[in-house]
């Protein structure tokens, strides 16, 4: 399973601003067993890019291929292979965590036996087994985030897309989530995640794409980005890239 994003652009319209790009000319590829991180400030276009890849937005320009399946031509086919954790998605408050996982597993055509095994495995891996039969309304923010993660990957997708996965997690829960991402990488999954936390990007990502104002500014490993900008760490490299982009935009 691989992901190829080719020249993806998404235009929006606003009465005050007129037509503008949410993301523009975004191209990158993620190979099996690789964690690719989209690193950018708030409003940079990370979520827009992830939504296009996960078939929620129809791209205005370009497209993405999930294992040769064109997401704009066959979104239904693409959905079978991807799991998407959105930063804005919610959970059914009146259902228990187990019921939610069962529901989503069944929607993804999973066999009952396999589904139950997968639920048990995820409850263990993300460490919320004790809350499996508690209604979501009574869960803490961190546990809810774990349920959301489990829900998005219940069908064992080959492409996992995580939009700011550690939001709302405490240190222990974030660490469990990071460990889980590493395990999935070892299983050969293709992982695309967005974050604005440098340490998370550094810890988890094999390659990073720095995104700002809807454009992909640079793609490479942490070392490559440092080398490109001549900075000593990722944070400084990131700041330099973003500032440079902003000054170019202002000059235009």
């Amino acid at each position: 399973m691989s992901l190829k994003v080719q020249g993806v652009g998404k235009r929006f319209y606003d009465k005050g601003r007129g037509e503008f790009y949410g993301c523009k000319d975004i191209s990158f590829a993620v190979e099996p067993g690789e964690v690719f991180g989209l690193l950018g400030p708030n409003g940079a276009g990370k979520t827009t890019t992830l939504r296009v890849v996960s078939t929620i937005y129809a791209p205005t320009e370009g497209t993405a291929f999930i294992n040769e399946i064109d997401v704009s031509k066959d979104p239904q086919g693409a959905r079978r292979h991807l799991g998407f954790l959105s930063s804005t998605s919610g959970l059914y408050e009146r259902l228990t965590a187990r019921e939610i996982l069962q529901y989503f597993g069944r929607l993804c055509d999973m066999k009952e036996e396999l589904l139950n095994q997968r639920i048990d495995m995820l409850l263990e891996a993300l460490d919320f087994k004790q809350y499996a039969d508690t209604r979501v309304a009574k869960l803490s923010q961190g546990t809810r985030q774990k349920v959301s993660i489990a829900r998005s990957i219940i069908h064992d997708p080959l492409l996992i897309i995580l939009d700011e996965p550690s939001t709302g997690l405490d240190v222990l829960a974030a660490s469990a989530m990071h460990e889980f991402v590493r395990q999935e990488r070892q299983l050969g999954k293709c992982i695309l995640l967005s974050t604005h936390t440098m340490s998370e990007a550094e810890k988890l990502c094999d390659r990073i794409g720095v995104i700002s104002e809807g454009r992909l500014l640079a793609v490479g490993t942490v070392e490559e980005l440092k080398e490109l900008t001549g900075k000593a760490n990722l944070e400084e490299a990131f700041v330099k890239l973003v500032r440079k982009s902003e000054s170019l935009t202002n000059a235009q």
Binding site: S86, L91, F104, D109, S148, S152
Partner: peptide, 14 residues
């Protein structure tokens, strides 16, 4: 409004 529809529409159900 609650965002649950977003998670449903990316499942393969028609």
């Amino acid at each position: 409004e609650r965002g649950t529809l977003e998670s449903i529409v990316i499942t393969p159900i028609s």
